[in-house]
Design a protein around this nucleic acid. Sequence first.
DNA 1: AATGAATGAGAGTTCATTCAT
DNA 2: AATGAATGAACTCTCATTCAT
Lengths: 206, 206, 206, 206
Amino acid sequence: MSPPDSDPAVVAPSARADSRRADLVRAAYDLIVAHGLEGLRTRDIAARAGVNVATLHYYFPTKEALIAGVAEHLAQQFISVHAPPVVGGPSPALDRLRQEFADARVYQNERPDMLVVMQELMLRGRRDPAVAAIVAPSTQGWRIGLERMVAAGIAEGVFRPTLDQAAAADLVMAALGGVLLLNLPPPALTRVCAGIEQYLCVPEEE
Amino acid sequence: MSPPDSDPAVVAPSARADSRRADLVRAAYDLIVAHGLEGLRTRDIAARAGVNVATLHYYFPTKEALIAGVAEHLAQQFISVHAPPVVGGPSPALDRLRQEFADARVYQNERPDMLVVMQELMLRGRRDPAVAAIVAPSTQGWRIGLERMVAAGIAEGVFRPTLDQAAAADLVMAALGGVLLLNLPPPALTRVCAGIEQYLCVPEEE
Amino acid sequence: MSPPDSDPAVVAPSARADSRRADLVRAAYDLIVAHGLEGLRTRDIAARAGVNVATLHYYFPTKEALIAGVAEHLAQQFISVHAPPVVGGPSPALDRLRQEFADARVYQNERPDMLVVMQELMLRGRRDPAVAAIVAPSTQGWRIGLERMVAAGIAEGVFRPTLDQAAAADLVMAALGGVLLLNLPPPALTRVCAGIEQYLCVPEEE
Amino acid sequence: MSPPDSDPAVVAPSARADSRRADLVRAAYDLIVAHGLEGLRTRDIAARAGVNVATLHYYFPTKEALIAGVAEHLAQQFISVHAPPVVGGPSPALDRLRQEFADARVYQNERPDMLVVMQELMLRGRRDPAVAAIVAPSTQGWRIGLERMVAAGIAEGVFRPTLDQAAAADLVMAALGGVLLLNLPPPALTRVCAGIEQYLCVPEEE
DNA sequence: AATGAATGAGAGTTCATTCAT
DNA sequence: AATGAATGAACTCTCATTCAT
C-alpha cells in the first residue's frame, strides 16, 4: 500500500504521460524565454526535456500544439503567481488594488519571463487562433476582476463616487499593462501605481 | 513645364537606388503586417517589390539589415502620421493632450499596421541590438514630449498643480500604450482618454 | 550456414550508420575524381549515395566534415592498395624498393583516381587544417619507410655504402612523387625507376 | 614630341587595353595565391584591379578566359624568373645543371606563389583544356632542355657515359618537380640536388 | 513508449554574367 | 571604355515531421 505518488513504476500510465507533456511544455517555455518563439526549435525542446524529437511528436502532434500547451501553462502561471496577499487594510477594495500593484511588481522584478512569453504569445495569437483562444480569456478575466473591484470600492466609499466603473477598470488595466508591455522601469511602475490610486480614491481631507 | 525632377529618365541614379530601397522596405513592412516577422521571406519581399531576390541582397546585405530598414521606416511613420491638428482650444497643453488621444485613435482605427509592426520589432529588439537602437528612441521621444506637456499644463493652470510631472507622463504613456498594445477596443480607448483627462485636469467648478 | 553478420536485418544499428557514412564518403570520393573538389555538390553526393541531402547532413554536419572523411578514406586507400608483394629477390631492401616501384605503377595505371584526389586534397589542405592534418601523415609515413629501406640496403651491402641516408630517401620520394604528380607517362616512370635503382645500388662487377 | 609612353592620354588605345588586361590578370594571380582557384571571385578580382565587375567582363568574356590569361602569365613567369646565371664553371653542362638547382631554390624560397598557382592550374587543366594547352608546353620545354643538357654533359665527358639520356632527364625533372610539388623543405631540396649530381656525374678519382 | 534514421520543402545567400546607359 | 543595377541558377544548410522498429 504505497502512497500513490511514491513509486514511479506504479504511477498510472496517464500520469507518466502527463509528466512528459509537462516536461516538454516547460522546456519549450524556457526556450521561448531564452530565444523567442522565432528561435524555438523542436530539436532543442526535445533535447532540453531529455527525449528524442520523435517522442516530442508522440505527445504533441505539431509544434503548434506544443505552443498551445505553453499558452495554457502561461495562463496557469498568471492564475497562480501572486505577491504575498495584501490584507488588513481599512478597505477590501483598496487591498485588492494594492494586490494588483504588488502583482505587477512581482511580474516586473521576479518573473519577467512571464511577460516575455506573454508578448510572444499575444503576437502569435494574431495568426494562430488556438493560441488566441487561450491567451484572450486571461485578459478578459483580469478586466472582470478589476471592474468588480471598482464597483466594490465605490460602494465602500473609498473610491470616488463619480467614477465611471468601466472607464476606471480600463484605465487600471491599460496603465498597468502598458508599464509591463512597454518595459518601463520599476520607478515608473511605482509612479503609475501612485497615479492610479490618486485617480481612483476620494481625495483626502485637508 | 514640368519641374526638372518629374521625368524619371533624369532622376539621379542615387534617387533611383533610394526608391528601390524604399520599395523593398515597404514590401517588407507590408509582409510583416500580413504574416509577422516569423513569416517574412526574402523571396516574398523581392517578389512584392517586383525584383529578384538577388536584387534585394544588392541593396541590403542581409535580411537583418532590411529589417533594420523597416524599423527606420516605422520610426519615420510615427513621426509623420498624426491626426488632424487639434488647435484652438482654450489651452495649448490640453490641445496637445487631445492630440495624443486623437493620434492614438488614428493608430487604432486607421493604422493598426503600425502597431503590429511596432510590437514585432519591440520583440525582435530583444535579440537584435540594431533594431533595438532604432525602436527605443521612439519611446524615449514620446516620453519627453509628454513630460513637457504636463509641465506646460500645470504652468497654464489647466492641469492640477499637485500633479507629479514624471508620474503624470508615465501614466499617460502607460495607459495609452497599454490600450494599444493590449488591443483593447475603441470604446475602451475613449474611456481611458476620458479618465486620463479627468486625472490631469483641475476639477471643474460645480 | 552464413556467418551471423551477413543478414542485414541483424546488423547492429551503428554498423548500418557506418555503412551510410562509408557510402557517402565513397560517393563524394567518386565525384571528386569526376569533377574535382570545385565541382563537388552536396546534392550530387547525396543522390549518388541514394539518400536525401538532409540525410547527408545527418551524418556529416558540414560539407567540410565530409571532405575530411574523404581524406581519411584516401589515407586508408594508400595504406591498403599495393601491387602484389615483391618477394624472393636476393635482398629484402631491393624487394622493398621494387615494391615501391610496383606500387607507383599501380597508382599510375590502375588507380589514377587516388592521385587525383590526393592532389585535390593537398591543395585543399593549404586552406583547411582538418584536411592537412589527415593528408600530411601519409607523406610522413612514406618518408620514414623509405629511410628505413635505405638503411637496410646499405647494411645488406646492396646499396652503395657512401649513400647519404636522408638524401637517398628524399630522392626516391621526390622522384616517384614527381612522376606521379607531374603526370609523366608510364615509360617515364620505368626510366625513373631504373635511374633510381642505378643510383642506389652498388655498381655491378664487370 | 613627347616620348611614346609618357603621356597616358596619348597612349595607343590597344596599349591601354593591354595594361588593363594585365592588371586584371595580375589581380587574379594574386588572389589565386591568397585564396586558391576555389576562392577566386570575379568581384574580388575587379575590386583589386580597381575596376567594376562589368569592366572585367568587357576585357575577358568569362572567368575561364581570365584564368587562361593567368596561365599565360604564369608560363611567362617561368620563362623569365631565374636565379642569377651560374657560369664560369669547368663545364657548361654542369653550369646548366646547377642553374636548374638554383632556379628550384628560387621557386622554393622566393617565389612559392608560382608553385601554388602552378599546382592550381595543373589541377584545373585536367578539366579545362584551354588551361592544359597553356600549362603543358612549360613542362614539355623543361624536359627538352634537360635532355639537351644531359647529352651535352655526356659529350663533355662530365656526365657518366653509360647514362640513358631520357632516363636522366626524366629523373632530374621528376626529382626537382617532386620536391617542389610535395612541398618538401629546403634541406631536402639540397640533398636531392646533391643526389642528382652524384647520379649524373662521373665519379671523382680518388 | 520511444527512438534513430530519413526526408521534402524551403530558407538565406552567393556568383558569374548581362544590360541599359 | 566603363559602370551601376539586375538577375537566374544554384549552393549549403535547416527544420518540422514521419516511419520502421
